[in-house]
Amino acid sequence: MSVPEGALVSVCVLLRDRDVLHARRVAGQELEKLGARSVKKTRFVTAVSEIGRNAVMHGGGGEARIYSQVHPPCVTVVCRDKGPGIADVDAALCDGFSTAGSMGRGLGGARRLCDQMEIETTVGKGTCVTMVARL
């Protein structure tokens, strides 16, 4: 993905589940500042939660960078980890796919909840997921 639109608002370290809470709070606040409606905010923050949790649980931790732009209004969250990567992204996006005994709805669900989502991943190197909410 190209450079995220807007200005960098916050860099959140993602090491523990509490860190995911913080990242999603920041993303929600930025959407609120841009006047996002409740459903928009809930959808995007849920996506950030899914992806942020993946980074903590499967990626061994990482960071979330949150960008905000006023014209045209959008919030972008770039979530990066240095974990094992995803061998088959298309399969991972399908509901029901899980390597961790969970439900396997997270990644595909997150994509449906964003206006735009891109996944860059290299096996053995890590994963970077870019999520965009446009208002």
């Binding site: 999603r24 929600g28 905010k41 809930t42 923050v45 849920t46 939660s49 899914e50 949790r53 969970s102 439900m103 709805r105 997270g106 669900g109």
Partner: peptide, 10 residues
């Protein structure tokens, strides 16, 4: 709860 994601839902 402002959000319920797949983990909390599960």
């Amino acid at each position: 709860l402002e959000i319920v994601d797949t983990f909390v839902g599960r």
